[in-house]
Amino acid sequence: MLLEVKNKMEEFCRISQEVQNFCTEHGVSEEKYQNISLILDELITNVVSYAYPDGNQHTFTINLEECDEKICMCITDDGMPFNPLSLAEPDTESSIEDRKIGGLGIFLVKQLSETVAYSRVDDKNQLYVKVSIL
């Protein structure tokens, strides 16, 4: 399933419904559906917030596929080159005073998925995420 998404947060509601339908059709468990939903929320937020600093309207894509009991997601945007996996991970051992506020979204994505990979192809950012169905 290929979804075209505009770079505004209001899109999330529509995408959320499409993803829920896709997960139901492919027998994704409730727990994994919740995880997939959170992963896409974080990744869409990143693209909408940071990929297009010009403030103009752009369209990026989300591709969802099922293969061998896994859901593979690929988010492709033609925004600024940015590898979210290069961000420093939050230090989950630090005290509340020292704990930094950023970097949590992509950290959750990594925690909730089996594989996360970034590539820059044809002047586009591609983030590939794999989650098991059960």
Partner: peptide, 20 residues
């Protein structure tokens, strides 16, 4: 029934503020 990192950030910000 749902919280993303944007909500976690608010809780952390409040925790830091109150601790300080």
């Amino acid at each position: 029934d749902y919280i993303s990192s944007a909500g976690l950030r608010v809780v952390l910000m409040l925790g830091k503020k109150l601790t300080a």
